[in-house]
C-alpha cells in the first residue's frame, strides 16, 4: 500500500518535471509548422522535436547544386543552384554557424496545429511517423529538418513583406522512392 501511495505521488511529479523541462514553441514557430503539410493531409507526427547535429554539413552551395531542381514553387520559382545566393545574409550565416547550438527539443501541442487529421505520438516506433525539428528562426529566414521513412530533407522558409511565412525551398538529404512488395 505504501508503495502504491509512493507511485501515485511520484508519477504526476515526474510528469510535471518533464513538462517543465521541455520548452514550448512560439506562436511564430507554429505559424511555420502550420505551413509544412497540406492542411487536410493525414499523418502521424512525433510529439517531440529534435535536431540532428550533422545538419550544417548539408547547408552548402555544393549540396544545393547537387540536389538540383527548383525553389519557391508557389511564386516566382528559381533554380536550387541559386538558393545559396538567395540566402546570402547575416541571418542565414547566423543559422548556419549556430545550428548545432540552436537545436533544442520541444513538445508539440496538438491544439496549436491546424491539421485536423494529424496524430501526435510519444514514441518513434515505426517509420511511418514524421519526425521534425522545431523551426529555427532568424530574421526573415527559418529552417526545419524533416524525416519521413526513407526521405530526409531541410525545408527553408522565408517571411514575405506582409510578415507571412512560406516555403522557400526543400533540399533533400536523402530521397529514396521505395516500392514495396507484398
Amino acid at each position: 500500500m505504501k508503495k502504491l501511495i509512493f507511485l501515485i505521488i511520484l508519477f504526476p511529479l515526474t510528469a510535471f518535471i518533464q513538462e517543465k523541462e521541455l520548452p514550448k514553441l512560439s506562436v511564430e514557430q507554429y505559424e511555420i509548422l502550420n505551413k509544412l503539410f497540406p492542411k487536410e493531409a493525414s499523418f502521424t507526427l512525433l510529439r517531440y522535436t529534435s535536431f540532428p547535429l550533422h545538419l550544417d554539413y548539408f547547408l552548402t552551395k555544393e549540396h544545393f547544386e547537387m540536389d538540383g531542381g527548383f525553389c519557391r514553387l508557389t511564386n516566382d520559382p528559381f533554380e536550387k543552384s541559386d538558393l545559396w545566393d538567395h540566402l546570402d545574409s547575416e541571418d542565414f550565416e547566423y543559422i548556419k554557424d549556430n545550428i548545432s547550438l540552436l537545436g533544442e527539443a520541444y513538445e508539440l501541442e496538438q491544439g496549436k496545429l491546424i491539421y485536423p487529421n494529424v496524430q501526435l505520438v510519444d514514441l518513434y516506433l515505426n517509420n511511418h511517423i514524421h519526425l521534425i525539428s522545431a523551426p529555427i528562426i532568424k530574421g526573415r529566414f527559418s529552417i526545419i529538418h524533416h524525416v519521413h521513412s526513407f526521405i530526409e530533407k531541410i525545408i527553408f522558409f522565408e517571411k514575405d513583406e506582409n510578415g507571412d511565412w512560406d516555403i522557400l525551398c526543400e533540399v533533400y538529404i536523402k530521397l529514396d522512392l521505395v516500392d514495396f512488395g507484398h
Partner: peptide, 8 residues
C-alpha cells in the same frame, strides 16, 4: 519486402 527503389 522492398522490390525496388529509385533515388537521386
Amino acid at each position: 519486402m522492398i522490390n525496388a527503389r529509385t533515388t537521386l
